[in-house]
Design a protein around this nucleic acid. Structure first.
Lengths: 330, 330
DNA sequence: AATTAGCACTTCTATTCCATGAATGCTATT
DNA sequence: AATAGCATTCATGGAATAGAAGTGCTAATT
């Protein structure tokens, strides 16, 4: 276990490094820890033995290790109060009633990325307990219609439907009625199978041009499984940090960001706010990720902030926490 | 005017530089231009006098200048045939009837960014001649509704509406009916003023809680002026080019990409495919932009490719051209 | 008159060497 | 247990150097 002084020293090293991005020397801290640099060097040696700090070369100052950040986050850091101005900006977004929840989340994370200079990610989807509440079909040309699907949680999606030439308006209406009757109340992820096993037989039986019509609507309606959609804000913020000072490092991260797989790495299913430092996250050893899960009104997803390992964990946590509270849970 | 040989030489320099990203030496071309390096040096001096090529330092090989690229694009480059495989990939997207036009365009430009390794941008919006075809309002909670607006061109938008507590269902229905009756057929950009000057008086007259209800719907419907929306694909592709080999250059471009103003720079209103080389574009001197305008079925916008100045202009043009043809015009 | 061979000259690039400074670890002292 | 003092290590930046890759120009050649 760390002594009080060691803990204090680790705190100083972490916070100093977060601020300056330069290895911290014993001399620089001697005034703050009212003892000599030699004493600090001894304590530093101890912290290094524990694996909490590292040297970049034999005679360099110390830099927090992943483990050091971890200890800092878990045992030293005190939750930060959100500054009033920032709070106001975010509050305004959530109090705007015209905004759909997902838009409010996206907008607020955009603000957060500006406030922190980190990269914000919202990974959201309408959850599986969205059920179809209504289907509306609007003709827009002779053989073209727009099908609109509305869920009971207020999700709206629309698709093109091309109507084959040889079918009558009456048949189209008949088909829509059948689909509508059978599909209202069905959860999104079951739409496809309900169409196939319940709707198709009925259409086959009662509608003349059943094959062509069923296919037209099936291709429009079949892919309603909630698809996760990811929004990033301030993508480049992270790359402006001085530790990403050469092209290859920047490119490495940019490649990760473009990678379709990243979506999986970001996903979080724990309700608490989690912090993944350096090697703890699956994206890149040089960054940290702080994220949390949300669920509200049939929308679920993950919000995350990606920053350098020397991110201001306390501030990041306070911001995510505030947004989480504003989303509210159900 | 350039002699035949000078033109040939410029072509070789440009194409060589595009391929190798290294200044082109006289020696390297002597075999291809069946004459000695000394002769080529003389011709190079002439081309440099015209301003078509440049040296990076006194004893370096030559690099095309913006003017040189311009001459190449205008007078030397021959339109490229699209390769069959690429063509097929793109064709498939446009032949998928379930896709809305704007989605097809987005998807195809995504492919293009992969095929070229440049950054693709789609800047689109539903044009002003979209008229409201139908309004649908679906309740999803006691005091919450989803308003859905469908245009005659098949555009769909939806908004939240919060219903004040003290109004009856009948009143809500009455309000919706009034709005619906007066607003169908109105072009999107006039919705706001029609609401204010035609709908409001009627609601004021016939609906009891007119103020609260009008406000609720107005805030949902008022911002229907077609808002341009921008989609970028392969944002990082451009930055992988070897000419962007240091952090500050990459950051410079990334900053441009994040800049909200960029949307204005990309916008194009000429129907032809236009190429803006280096200083000719308003984004950055180190890049080139090739773009064109499209209009179809009430959707309009710009598609653009951003690449290094040494982009394969012929290929880029062929791709944009192909997509333009597939969008079709009206 | 156009082309070419030949050569001096310029600049970039990579390497080495060196001096400096900022740290450290360790030992001896308080 | 804390500190002063000192040798040691390594990063950093500048200067010097050698080599390579080009060019421009002149004089010879076609």
């Amino acid at each position: 276990m760390l002594t009080g002084r060691q803990e204090k020293l680790l705190k100083l090293i972490v916070e100093n490094y977060i601020k300056t991005v330069k290895p911290v020397s014993s001399k620089a801290l001697s005034s703050k820890l009212k003892c000599s640099s030699a004493t600090i060097r001894n304590e530093m040696a101890a912290l290094e033995n524990f694996g909490f700090i590292e040297k970049t070369h034999t005679s360099s100052g110390r830099v927090p290790s992943d483990l050091g950040y971890r200890y800092y986050v878990d045992n030293i850091m005190v939750p930060r109060e959100l500054n009033g101005e920032d709070m106001l900006k975010l509050k305004q977004i959530f109090s705007n009633n015209a905004l759909v929840l997902s838009d409010a989340i996206n907008k607020s994370m955009e603000i957060v990325s500006e406030l922190t200079n980190y990269t914000a990610i919202v990974l959201g989807s309408s959850s599986n307990d969205n059920r179809i509440a209504k289907i509306e079909v609007v003709p827009i040309a002779d053989n073209k219609m727009i099908a609109i699907i509305i869920t009971d949680k207020g999700h709206v999606e629309n698709r093109n439907v091309s109507i084959p030439n040889n079918v009558s308006k009456a048949e189209v209406k008949q088909t829509i009625d059948i689909i509508s009757k059978l599909i209202v109340g069905v959860p999104l992820n079951e739409v496809s199978s309900v169409l196939e096993f319940e709707v198709k037989p009925v259409i086959d039986r009662y509608v003349k041009e059943h094959e062509a019509l069923y296919n037209a609507f099936y291709s429009a309606f079949s892919d309603f499984t909630p698809k996760p959609n990811m929004k990033m804000s301030g993508t480049t913020n992270l790359l402006m940090s001085p530790e990403f000072d050469d092209a290859s490092k920047i490119r490495k991260i940019l490649n990760k960001f473009e990678d379709k797989e990243m979506i999986k790495h970001i996903k979080e299913d724990d309700d608490e706010i989690k912090i993944y430092i350096g090697s703890e996250n699956n994206i890149d050893d040089d960054i940290s990720v702080i994220k949390t899960y949300f669920y509200k009104d049939g929308e679920e997803g993950t919000i995350a902030l990606i920053g350098p390992k020397r991110m201001e964990y306390d501030k990041a946590e306070a911001l995510l926490n505030f947004i989480k509270e504003n989303i509210g849970n159900e």
